[in-house]
Deep mutational scan, measured.
Amino acid sequence: TGIVNVSSSLNVRSSASTSSKVIGSLSGNTKVTIVGEEGAFYKIEYKGSHGYVAAEYI
């Protein structure tokens, strides 16, 4: 489990890349469940599926 540490919002992406499609966003202080790690990204549970967020902001 981690907490989103941004002042505005954090993009949730379809894969572990900044060039991948943005599938949603999370606001600051949102609690997320981390299920894996790929490079600089965490794989998280997101809306019944999975998404990827930049690990530096969690």
Score class of each variant (00 low, 15 high):
Gly39Cys: 07
Leu10Thr: 09
Ile23Ala: 02
Ser20Trp: 04
Tyr52Met: 01
His50Ile: 14
Ser7Asn: 11
Ser9Ile: 11
Arg13His: 15
Ser14Ala: 15
Ser8Phe: 13
Ser25Asp: 06
Ala54Pro: 15
Ile23Gly: 01
Ser25Cys: 15
Leu26Asp: 00
Gly51Met: 02
Val22Trp: 05
Phe41Thr: 02
Ala54His: 10
Val22Arg: 04
Ser27Val: 12
Ala16Ile: 05
Ala55Asn: 06
Val6Tyr: 07
Val22Glu: 03
Ala55Gln: 14
Glu38Val: 10
Val4Asp: 03
Thr30Ser: 12
Asn11Met: 13
Val35Phe: 06
Ala40Ile: 10
Val22Asp: 03
Ala55Phe: 08
Ser17Lys: 07
Leu10Tyr: 02
Ala54Ser: 10
Leu10Gln: 05
Lys47Met: 14
Ile58Ser: 01
Ala40Tyr: 09
Ser17Gly: 07
Val53Ser: 00
Glu37Lys: 15
Thr33Glu: 06
Glu56Asp: 08
Lys31Ser: 09
Ala40Phe: 09
Lys31Ala: 10
Leu26Ala: 02
Val12Ser: 01
Gly2Gln: 05
Gly28Pro: 15
Ile44Tyr: 01
Gly39Ala: 05
Glu56Ser: 08
Tyr57Met: 08
His50Val: 14
Gly39Asp: 08
Ala16Met: 04
Gly28Phe: 14
Leu10Ala: 12
Gly2His: 08
Ile44Arg: 00
Ile34Lys: 01
Glu37Cys: 15
Leu26Trp: 02
Ser14Thr: 08
Gly2Tyr: 08
Gly2Leu: 07
Ser15Leu: 09
Val22Phe: 05
Ile3Val: 12
Glu45Cys: 13
Val35Lys: 05
Lys21Cys: 10
Asn29Asp: 08
Lys21Trp: 07
Val4Lys: 04
Ser14Lys: 12
Ile23Asn: 01
Ile3Asp: 04
Gly51Thr: 00
Tyr52His: 01
Ser27Leu: 13
Ile3Pro: 04
Thr18Arg: 11
Lys31Gln: 12
Lys43Pro: 02
Ser27Lys: 14
Leu26His: 03
Ser15Arg: 11
Asn29Tyr: 14
Ser17Thr: 09
Ser9Val: 11
Ile3Tyr: 15
Gly48Ala: 06
Val35Met: 09
Val4Thr: 07
Asn5Glu: 06
Gly51Cys: 04
Ser7Met: 11
Glu38Gly: 02
His50Gln: 06
Lys47Ala: 12
Val6Cys: 15
Ser19Gly: 10
Val4Trp: 03
Phe41Tyr: 10
Tyr42Ala: 04
Asn29Glu: 07
Gly51Arg: 01
Gly39Ile: 03
Glu45Leu: 13
Ile23Leu: 09
Val35Glu: 04
Ser49Thr: 13
Ile44Gly: 02
Lys47Pro: 02
Ser49Pro: 01
Thr30Asn: 05
Thr1Glu: 11
Tyr42Val: 08
Ile58Val: 10
Glu38Thr: 07
Ser25Lys: 14
Val35Leu: 15
Ala40Asn: 12
Ser49Met: 13
Asn29Cys: 15
Ser27His: 11
Ser7Arg: 12
Asn11Glu: 15
Ala55Trp: 06
Gly2Ser: 05
Ala54Trp: 15
Ala55Ser: 13
Val53Asp: 00
Val12Glu: 01
Ser27Cys: 15
Ala16Tyr: 04
Ile44Asn: 01
Ile34Asp: 00
Val4Ile: 08
Ser49Asn: 09
Ile34Thr: 00
Asn5His: 09
Gly2Met: 08
Lys31Ile: 15
Val53Cys: 03
Ser19His: 12
Ile23Thr: 03
Gly51Lys: 01
Tyr52Thr: 00
Val22Ile: 14
Val53Thr: 01
Val6Trp: 06
Ile58Phe: 05
Gly39Phe: 05
Gly24Trp: 04
Ala40His: 10
Ser49Ile: 12
Lys47Leu: 13
Gly28Thr: 12
Ser27Trp: 09
Val32Phe: 04
Glu38Trp: 07
Gly51Ser: 02
Thr30Asp: 10
Ser20Asn: 02
Val12Ile: 07
Ser20Val: 04
Val12His: 00
Tyr57Pro: 02
Gly24Cys: 08
Thr1Cys: 15
Arg13Thr: 12
Ile44Ser: 01
Val12Lys: 00
Asn5Arg: 12
Leu10Val: 15
Ser49Asp: 09
Ile44Lys: 00
Gly36His: 06
Tyr52Gln: 00
Ser20Met: 03
Asn5Pro: 04
Tyr46Trp: 11
Asn29Thr: 07
Val6Gly: 10
Lys43Glu: 07
Ala40Arg: 10
Leu10Gly: 03
Ser19Pro: 05
Ile34Arg: 00
Asn11Leu: 15
Val22Leu: 07
Ser25Gln: 14
Ser20Gln: 02
Ser15Met: 10
Lys47Phe: 11
Ser19Tyr: 08
Gly39Leu: 05
Tyr46Phe: 13
Lys21Gly: 08
Ser8Trp: 12
Ala16Asp: 03
Gly48Ile: 03
Gly36Gln: 06
Gly39Glu: 06
Ser14Phe: 11
His50Thr: 10
Ser9Leu: 10
Val53Arg: 00
Tyr52Leu: 02
Ile23Phe: 02
Glu37Asn: 09
Glu38Asp: 09
Arg13Ala: 04
Glu37Thr: 15
Ser49Leu: 11
Val22His: 04
Gly36Trp: 06
Gly48Thr: 06
Thr1Trp: 15
Lys31Val: 15
Thr33Gly: 03
Lys47Asn: 14
Asn29Ala: 09
Ser15Phe: 08
Ala40Leu: 12
Leu26Cys: 04
Ser7Gln: 11
Glu37His: 14
Ser25Met: 14
Phe41Val: 02
Val12Ala: 01
Gly2Val: 08
Tyr42Cys: 07
Ser9Asn: 10
Val32Thr: 01
Thr33Lys: 12
Tyr52Asn: 00
Lys43Tyr: 07
His50Met: 09
Ser27Gly: 10
Gly39Ser: 05
Lys21Tyr: 08
Thr1Gly: 08
Ala16Phe: 03
Gly51Leu: 02
Gly28Cys: 14
Ile44Phe: 01
Thr1Val: 13
Ser17Glu: 08
Ser19Val: 09
Lys31Pro: 09
Arg13Tyr: 15
Tyr52Trp: 12
Ser15Gln: 12
Ile3Ala: 05
Ser20Phe: 06
Arg13Trp: 15
Glu45Tyr: 08
Ala54Thr: 08
Leu10Asn: 02
Ser17Tyr: 05
Asn29Gln: 11
Thr18Phe: 14
Tyr42Ser: 03
Ser7Pro: 11
Gly36Asp: 08
Val35Gln: 05
Asn11Pro: 15
Ala16Arg: 04
